[in-house]
């Protein structure tokens, strides 16, 4: 009898937990996703309806005018996409290679100075000279203002990712490097043809973090880019959001009738969709690598 009541009270607890769980997680997931839905719907809403009723969950009066407008004069947006793609591709490939190579050297136990070098890198996460000297170095001394290099090189090496990569590479048995060494392979050769293939999961994860960082980077451009031709996508969006007035002027000078209703608000939202679209499309496929990366980080600390 008693056993039965214990069991039923346990079932009640389970049920209660499930109720709380479904409700709370449902609300959290809703809050995480709904802003995206509102942005998407707003981008597809007729401008006058937005002016009258504001942004909402479902487009009351459907209109693709904003997208038509963006793609009618696609030069700027295509160029911004191009800049972002180039920066992301080069920055990720080069950054990943350097990160992995550095991490490999740092976890070679027979390397006498590995702890010294590890500290050399780690110290920069504790102390820095601040924004001003860094900015002056890049702009005045290295003369990188308005170059693609300014978007890639200063942020090429991220110490945090070197540490994550090192935590992963530490899991590869030393015996692999050692036996290859005995067979006469050089250190670089070992890294290239033995270590890299073995660390594909970590490379995928760190690579995607790097790529996401470059794709979403607007800060480097805010500091170093004033030339319209070199604006990456996110910075272009930032400029557009802040300066629709300039957009209006651009349309005026390109001969568009200014009295026509310019879909300012829906245009902002459509630009937002265009700027984060590829990430959202790729998201279902790349998410697991991020989860994997975080799991490595959590377990290995």
């Amino acid at each position: 009898m008693q056993g039965l009541s214990v069991r039923s009270s346990r079932q009640k607890d389970r049920l209660l937990l499930s109720l709380i769980g479904y409700a709370m997680l449902g609300v959290m997931a809703f809050i995480c996703v709904v802003p995206f839905v509102i942005v998407l719907s707003s981008s597809l809403t007729d401008e006058n309806t937005i002016r009258m009723n504001g942004f909402g969950l479902i487009p009351k009066v459907f209109s693709a005018e904003a997208y038509r407008m963006i793609f009618e004069y696609p030069d700027d947006i295509v160029r911004a996409y191009g800049v972002t793609l180039v920066v992301t591709a080069i920055g990720t490939a080069l950054g990943l290679f350097l990160t992995a190579m550095t991490a490999y050297v740092l976890c070679r136990k027979d390397f006498k100075w590995r702890n010294h070098f590890a500290f050399y890198f780690f110290f920069t996460t504790l102390f820095s000279g601040g924004l001003v000297p860094w900015y002056l170095l890049i702009v005045n001394y290295l003369d990188m203002k308005n170059t693609l290099a300014a978007l890639i090189i200063p942020t090429l090496v991220n110490v945090f990712y070197i540490m994550v990569m090192r935590a992963f590479l530490a899991g590869i048995p030393d015996a692999i490097s050692e036996s290859a060494k005995i067979d006469g392979a050089g250190d670089f050769r070992i890294f290239l043809s033995l270590i890299l293939p073995l660390s594909k999961p970590a490379l995928a994860t760190v690579g995607l973090f790097l790529a996401l960082g470059h794709w979403n980077d607007w800060y480097s451009a805010l500091l170093f880019i004033s030339d319209d031709k070199l604006m990456p996508l996110q910075y272009y969006l930032y400029q557009m959001l802040g300066n629709l007035e300039g957009m209006r002027k651009a349309m005026l000078s390109s001969g568009t009738d200014i009295s026509a209703n310019i879909p300012g608000e829906s245009l902002k939202m459509a630009m937002t969709v265009v700027a984060c679209g590829p990430i959202l499309f790729a998201y279902p496929f790349i998410q697991k690598y991020f989860v994997q990366g975080l799991t490595i980080g959590a377990v290995k600390g």
Binding site: L237, T272, A275, C276
Partner: peptide, 14 residues
């Protein structure tokens, strides 16, 4: 996890 993947510029727009 979705909001993690967008830039702060997009968050500003939201």
């Amino acid at each position: 996890f979705l909001p993690y993947f967008i830039s702060w510029v997009v968050v500003g727009s939201i």
